[in-house]
Design a protein around this nucleic acid. Structure first.
Length: 957
RNA sequence: GGGCGGUUAGCUCAGCUGGUUAGAGCGCCUGCCUUACAAGCAGGAGGUCGCAGGUUCGAGCCCUGCACUGCCCACCA
């Protein structure tokens, strides 16, 4: 049976009968391959195979195993997530790097998992409940959480299933979820230890409050947006005087909670008012005028209202001056009981009313247009209210110090480099991190409060305490959960078994690399570094001795170096649409990767993302590019068809067998180099391998991809395959020795090229590779084969130069044919004059190639220069002329020549000028000067010829 | 308010530490269904490298200024 009949039933069976996989493969009939590559059927088949075979499962290497290790953590997508182009870019890059390492013999662990995503998930389930007419609070915490778990079990794996379709070579056997028992346990452990280290505190501070989500959020979750707003100037009457003091505010509703007016201590305008009271309008409360740096003399009137309960700066000032904190806005963003007549109003309704009342009572001095940097909740878009609230915080400075050190010292390297600086800037200005969230879905804070009124003790513990130190037994756990990023910040070590001293931790930590987008650089990358450098250093490092540095690491600095969560960070760009617009649901320009994949194939889509991933700019994803790379896949496919057709015809036993390649092989298995094209392609292959490896080393996915593309299409297909065809197409009854050699070379070169390409296009390479071995490959997958390593000894500049001359001749003849409009089917005789005997030998040895590729009937070598005869092309090494009676289009030819001559002379003038310049001769490197001289000579010849020809054409008219 | 990118062919982008003739894909034009591939083959047109100065023997690349554009960060009313 033919597997390419794309039989979905068989694929489906796989899940049930994994043992049948060879059944499909051995029946492969390559000569029946369809003309066009059909990625759909092939890709789903292999995607399933890779998962079923547990191909990428990594057993922990035991002591004594000397293989190098490569570890990569998948940035865990939210359980609520659907795969978007950003994921696909991220995963493509990771997969390329991981497959590449694996093929180079690294124990390569790519760890997958999902994030419980506190707010996002809770909101999603709440919305779902709402459709059933249920509300979270009515349901109760326990029931609600059970419901979220249900939802997670049902839908939470969607994004990972999509990943499987992409062929991501992750170890599915190690998949984690951030709320798994072991990870939850580690989260608790971390919290308790930070608390014991004095780095976690609880307190009443101003936090960013999202009234929609009903929770505090961290600074990072607030997105500032410049919007046109108003600046209101309000005058407060000074008690015991007829004076007023005018303050300005963008949020007049907060005035209800004012507890002072501040002026700068140095501001002479207000010296006489220090210590006086003002009467707060609308509220008729007396509040003091204080002298504080908070007020800047240059701004507005130099006097500022102080609302400690609703502004972070005012809060600080309030502490300095012992001011009362009066909250006037509640958790639903409504005015509360302290707001007098405005109680119950929404904050914006209150604002309008207050402005109206102030105006009516003559307190409003003026209203100005003013641009406000409005803070909005990243998740809900609601305007964030700074609000006094009791929360848990992490004291960040000690953590940040280490996180700065490791980057300063180069223990973590960023690519592109400038992100290192961006990271450091941020880290230097970091504030304490509010980690408590008023949600239900997440890791509950391991703190218990004693309900004994006399005690009110807080117990932070790993397990629920049964009794308080006061003897009380009524202890209640904090109802808040932790910020999602708290747990994801621990993943590099908790997924490997921390706090246990595991073998995994020894082997796989630090991770080798982190690949992610800059959008979570601070949210996640920075937190991982801070927490990693804290918990993988003594005394928290498992098995570490509190007394001193770990003996295996040696020094304190060594400890620090070993504590980083990853050695390198690669930051990738954002994927935008073809018009460079950010993809967003509201704009409706979101490209669904799965749809693109279905249309063009996963390999082509991956290739697009790789090829466009140049550093520094975002990726404008254009489908026309993907179509182009789909064509590339098709090209590979057809090259394979050519190969299979010939193998089957010439000698099917030429197919490689499982014994032939004892993996992992780093080059081409065997290669005969008796012809120019063989020596040439071998040289070019090695050069490509070298370039690709260098590019991948530098995370230049774009360079690697285009280099492979150029090699495979431009060199292998366009020239090599064409050149070996005569040998493959032996005549009936003729000796097949040559054909067999050519065929074997083709197979082995193709096989190595597939390995070169595999990390970027895993599916088509796997498919063809298996087919080459006729279903009995030496390994279960090409992914386990060796990655080609360049052999400098096989790079041959002399051969490449010879080939270049030959190509030059062929292209020259093609040019002439096109200019003279020779009918494609007509083979023409050509005259060739060579400047050197070697060139003649080269042409003579490759006559077949010239005749075939340039449609030449025969080559006549002549003894004198063809100079200016019609139908002639010349280079510095040869002249070639096609013998064809059709009249040259004199006008067109003259125009072409004139243009060419102009170009030559322009370049010539440039060169002459430089060569005449003594400073140039003195300062420029010899190589450049020599090159220029050689070129000048070439140009001289070319110019002479062009002139002569032009002259002749002129005379003819 | 601070900081970081980008500006190269009609479109989307490459161009490595400054060095001989600035490249690719798509699109466009001409001719070909040449038994691997029309998702292909062969040939071709198309660029004052955003603007203005400067450094240099030499600038798309380095420096300065300007213009346009995108992004990140920021507790100043």
């Amino acid at each position: 049976m033919n597997v390419l009949a794309a039989d979905p039933q068989k694929c489906a069976l796989w899940g049930v009968f994994p043992e049948v996989e060879c059944w499909v493969l051995t029946s492969y009939m390559p000569h029946e391959l369809p003309k066009a590559y059909e990625p759909g059927a092939i890709e789903t088949r292999w995607a399933e195979y890779w998962v079923q075979e547990k191909l990428f499962h990594v057993e922990t290497p035991q002591p004594g195993d000397s293989r190098p290790v490569f570890t990569l953590l998948l940035p865990p997508p939210n359980v609520t997530g659907r795969l978007h182009m950003g994921h696909m870019l991220n995963q493509t890059q990771m997969d390329i790097i991981v497959r590449w390492h694996r093929m180079r013999g690294f124990v390569s662990l790519w760890l997958p998992g999902t994030d419980h995503a506190g707010i996002a998930t809770q909101m999603m389930v709440e919305r779902q409940l709402l459709k059933e007419g249920k509300k979270r609070r009515e349901m109760g915490r326990e029931k609600f959480i059970e419901r979220v778990w249900e939802w997670k079990r049902e839908y939470g794996g969607a994004i990972l299933d999509q990943m499987k379709r992409l062929g991501a070579s992750v170890d599915w056997g190690r998949e984690y979820f951030t709320m798994d028992d072991n990870l939850s346990h580690a989260v608790k452990e971390v919290f308790v230890r930070l608390y014991e280290d004095g780095l976690i505190y609880r307190g009443k501070y101003i936090v960013n409050w999202c009234s929609d989500c009903g929770t505090a959020i961290s600074d990072l979750e607030v997105k500032h947006e410049d919007v046109p707003g108003k600046l209101y100037e309000i005058r407060y009457p000074v008690v015991g005087s007829s004076e007023f003091i005018t303050v300005a505010t963008t949020r007049p509703e907060t005035m209800l909670g004012d507890t002072a007016v501040a002026v700068n201590p140095t501001d002479e305008r207000y010296l006489h008012l220090h210590g006086k009271q003002v009467l707060l309008p609308l509220m008729n409360r007396e509040i003091p005028i204080i002298a504080d740096e908070l007020a800047q003399p240059e701004f507005g009137t130099g006097a500022v209202k102080v609302t400690p309960a609703h502004d972070p700066n005012d809060f600080e000032a309030g502490l300095r001056h012992n001011l009362p904190q009066i909250e006037v806005i509640d958790e639903h963003a409504k005015m509360n009981g302290n707001a007098g007549a405005y109680a119950g109003l929404d904050r914006f309704a209150a604002r309008a009313k207050i402005v109206e009342d102030l105006s009516a009572q003559g307190f409003l001095v003026g209203t100005k247009d003013y641009t406000i940097a409005l803070g909005k909740c990243d998740r809900s878009g609601t305007i964030v209210e700074p609000r006094l609230s009791t929360q848990w915080f992490i004291k960040i400075a000690p953590l940040a110090k280490r996180a700065i050190d490791v980057v300063d010292k180069g223990y973590i390297r960023f690519t592109p480099e400038n992100y290192g600086q961006i990271y450091l800037n941020w880290m230097h200005n970091i504030h304490d991190w509010c980690i408590s969230r008023q949600l239900w879905w997440g890791h509950r804070i391991p703190a218990w409060y004693c309900k004994n009124d006399d005690c009110k003790n807080v117990v932070v513990a790993r397990e629920a305490p049964s009794v308080c130190k006061c003897g009380g037994t009524k202890l209640e756990q904090d109802t808040d959960v932790l910020d999602t990023w708290f747990s994801s910040g621990l993943l590099p070590f908790t997924t490997l078994g921390w706090p246990q001293a595991t073998r995994d931790l020894d082997v796989f930590y630090p991770n080798s690399l982190m690949i992610t987008g800059f959008d979570i650089l601070f949210f996640w990358v920075a937190r991982m570094i801070m927490l990693g450098c804290w918990f993988m250093m003594p005394p928290h490092k498992p098995g570490s001795n509190k007394a001193g540095p770990d003996a295996s690491v040696g020094s304190e600095d060594g400890e620090l170096r070993a504590s980083v969560p990853f050695r390198e960070v690669y930051i990738h760009a954002l994927v935008r649409d073809a018009d460079r617009q950010k993809m967003s649901k509201t704009k409706g320009n979101v490209l669904d990767p799965i749809q693109v994949i279905e249309q063009y194939g996963t390999d082509a889509t991956r290739f697009t993302l790789a090829a466009m991933a140049a550093p520094g700019t975002d990726i404008a994803f254009s489908e026309s590019r993907t179509a182009g790379y789909r064509n590339f896949a098709n090209k590979i496919w057809n090259a394979a068809r050519l190969m299979f057709m010939n193998v089957d015809r010439i000698d099917a036993s030429l197919r490689p067998t499982s014994g032939q390649q004892s993996p992992p092989h780093k080059g081409i298995v065997a290669f005969d180099v008796s012809t120019l094209e063989d020596r040439w392609i071998l040289s070019r292959f090695n050069r490509a391998v070298k370039d690709v490896s260098e590019s991948l080393e530098a995370y230049r996915f774009d360079e690697a991809a285009t280099r492979i593309y150029d090699f495979f299409w431009g060199e292998f297909c366009d020239w090599y395959l064409e050149l070996i065809k005569p040998r493959l197409n032996f005549e009936e009854g003729a000796d097949t020795t040559e054909a067999k050699i050519a065929c074997r070379n083709l197979i082995n070169l193709f096989e190595a090229s597939l390995r070169l390409l595999h990390p970027v296009m895993p599916f088509i390479t796997e498919e063809i590779w298996h087919a080459m071995y006729d279903g009995a490959p030496p390994l279960r997958s090409i992914a386990l084969a060796g990655y080609p390593a360049a052999d400098d000894a096989q790079i041959d500049l002399g051969t490449e130069t010879e080939m270049a001359i030959l190509q030059d001749l062929i292209v020259s003849v093609r040019n002439l044919r096109a200019e003279l409009k020779v009918e494609p089917k007509v083979k023409v005789p050509v005259e060739v004059f060579v400047h050197e005997a070697e060139t003649r030998r080269l042409f003579e040895q490759n006559l077949t190639a010239i005749e075939r590729l340039a449609s030449v009937e025969r080559v006549i070598f002549v003894e004198s220069s063809l100079g200016n005869l019609p139908g002639t092309r010349g280079t510095s090494r040869f002249d070639v002329r096609i013998l064809y009676e059709r009249k040259v289009d004199v006008a067109a030819e003259r125009e072409r020549l004139a243009k060419e001559l102009e170009r030559i002379e322009k370049e010539q003038a440039n060169g002459q000028r430089q060569l005449a310049n003594e400073q140039f001769l003195a300062k420029a490197p010899a190589k450049v000067v020599e090159g220029l001289k050689a070129r000048a000579e070439e140009l001289r010849v070319l110019q002479e010829k062009a002139r002569a020809k032009l002259k002749e054409l002129g005379e003819n008219t």
